[in-house]
Design a binder for these strands. Structure first.
Lengths: 367, 367
DNA sequence: CTCAATTATGAGAAGACGCGACGTAAAGCT
DNA sequence: AGCTTTACGTCGCGTCTTCTCATAATTGAG
């Protein structure tokens, strides 16, 4: 039955200590046995045992000792990030981006393919697979060598990684994206909503590095909200957390309407605004207002530490941000910080990488 | 430094196993050594060691063996719930409720005092202390014998347990409620928003027992929203999660306005509605609409498994609930279940009990 | 080139814990 | 009284961790 926790024999200690060493190992480059032991809070002997275990499993490697220092040279070990690879995919309405990363999450290969809004589902999937395969092959990794893969896409993606609602991408509704991606490479596959993955990426290495509660606003041709609480993605029961579709917010304008009225596309508007064009500034303000309106619902509900603005409009830069801040301050008693996305359009694929890594770390590294 | 986890010596095993035994012990009444060992997944010897440890700490007690069975009588142990007590307080605008509970969370004493909206802060605190002290003394427990105490109140309560905004209770803003409560009994003190604590109570033993993501709607003279995600209370950065004050929701009527227009109080309305009074039914529908409007924001943002409706209006019963469900279904694509609160007006104090117990379990029982 | 100083390694002993096994104790049943 | 049943309690073993100390490998000074 085992409902009250796992077995607690001495093997658990070994696992825990190996885990501590692995974490210490990944903190930085090659380290000596003593350094690792101290970092993990263990004795040198225990550290040694853990390292020999990790080395056997291919996760650690001994490297040449440093020269030029007095005393017996210390054995040095490093994390074998190349022991496995994960794939992150962004299958967007207009763009497909594949990233191959090692176990450190460092991106090794990257492929980008263009699509358009009308590309049918089957063809879009072929493009995605092509981009992904190109990455894997370029890295010289065997096709079956992937440890996990994840994909982000527009629309509501449920817990199992199936697209349950998609209004933008034709033929997407009902697609088992996670299963598809997993089948391509014979590895565990995952899928999530694009804004959610972008939030994950920003929290991992981007603007939201230092916070654990954040709202990500994807604003642009693709739009949506991502929610990260306690450092964990929150997609909700059906995966539609943050999808405000039905919320009757007064004065909530869709950006496409605003842009259509203005008769110019976003890039032109931002460019003109930068040059002081009054009409463009007004449009930027209306866009900011709409973004803030949507964000305010999330902010008031979860009271996050940070709002990260990403997506195409984030090219609007600080001027757009300033307007969003101003509008948000009007709507919230105690508004959170608002900042720009670090990774821009790469954040979705990067978040997918992180999602795949999460699985690998949990299941294969035992972290 | 110790950032990578605690020491992992064999003492950890002991702690973990003792914890497993403690959990098993609390699952039900007196159990034999063998039963406990099996439930915790440990050997009998280990279970025995853990139990002797727990007995020494006063958390377990050996009881008389069962008679009438063949074989050597088995030693039986039980959790000593009376080893400590916690206090839960609801300091509301119109009512003060104190509950004293043992370590099982079973309420032993309960005191209720009436106040009104105009009672000044100092006097309200005196009433609260009086109710609490009465509970403690009635239980024959020493005044210093409390292990933890928590209080719920209207308004925004920050992480530290300080009331940062209170519109209902006069003089409440700025009050360090957690500190106050702790000082009364010389024990750790906590405080939180009432709707949040109600959510905690419903999740603990009420309607939300079986789910981990829920939205609680406090509807009545006191109103507000409580948010529980992954079984944990979410109060946000400043404690104002779920406070929708500034959200420009179209068609969001305040219940007090609706009732004022109707010219009857809530109890009358619900009574009349039960008898089929058409005008009353219309008012109930308007109330339900308002409740659903507010709830919809939380539901769309976090996509919970369940919405629990509590507070004074929950006396409106199934008929109100049905209207709320109907309105919510219009606003959400995939509406969650909606159910009535189990504990009604007691849920806030009960949630406070749970909050105090959380601290005790974490810090004193090591769970 | 040699020797001291430095730094890390590796083996051995001791302590703590958990588990399986076996003999023993205490009850009911015949 | 003896048998059966059930659980207790002790013993020994293996694992894990840490401490200690002798040993090994390097640098740098004379």
């Amino acid at each position: 039955m085992r409902t009250l926790g796992d077995t607690h024999d001495t093997a658990l200690l070994r696992r825990l200590n190996t885990r501590a060493i692995l974490l210490a190992l990944r903190q930085s480059g090659p380290q000596t046995l003593t350094q690792l032991a101290r970092a993990a809070g263990l004795s040198r002997q225990t550290a040694e045992a853990a390292l020999s275990d990790l080395t056997e499993r291919g996760l650690a490697r001994e490297v040449a000792p440093t020269e030029g220092r007095a005393g017996r040279p210390a054995r040095r070990f490093t994390f074998r990030a190349e022991a496995g690879h994960v794939l992150g995919l962004d299958v967007g309405p207009r763009r497909i981006l594949a990233m191959l990363a090692d176990l450190n999450g460092d991106v090794i290969e990257e492929r980008r393919l263009d699509a358009d809004e009308h590309t049918p589902a089957a063809e879009r999937l072929v493009l995605a697979e092509r981009a992904a395969t190109a990455c894997v092959e370029a890295a010289g990794s065997a096709r079956g060598g992937l440890w996990a893969a994840a994909a982000g896409t527009s629309g509501v993606v449920d817990r199992s990684g199936r697209v349950s609602v998609s209004t933008i991408v034709p033929g997407w509704t009902g697609l088992d994206l996670a299963g598809q991606v997993g089948r391509w490479f014979g590895c565990p596959g995952f899928a999530a909503n694009d804004a959610n993955l972008a939030a994950v990426a920003e929290h991992w290495r981007g603007s939201a590095r230092h916070v654990d509660d954040l709202v990500y606003v994807l604003a642009g041709y693709r739009s949506g909200h991502g929610l990260l609480l306690d450092g964990r993605l929150r997609t909700g029961r059906t995966g539609s957390a943050g999808e405000l579709g039905g919320l009757p917010l007064s004065g909530w304008e869709d950006s496409s309407v605003v842009l259509a009225e203005a008769g110019r596309d976003a890039a032109e508007i931002f460019e003109a605004a930068r040059e002081g064009d009054e009409q463009a500034l007004a449009v930027v303000d209306r866009l900011a207002h709409g973004i803030a309106r949507g964000a305010s619902a999330l902010v008031l509900v979860v009271d996050p530490e940070l709002v990260v603005v990403g997506g195409g409009f984030s090219r609007g830069g600080e001027s757009l941000l300033a307007r969003i801040r101003a509008h948000l301050a009007e709507m919230c008693l105690n508004p959170p910080e608002v900042t720009l996305s670090t990774f821009g359009e790469e954040s979705i694929a990067l978040g997918a990488v992180r999602m795949a890594l999460d699985h690998v770390e949990r299941e294969r590294l035992g972290l």
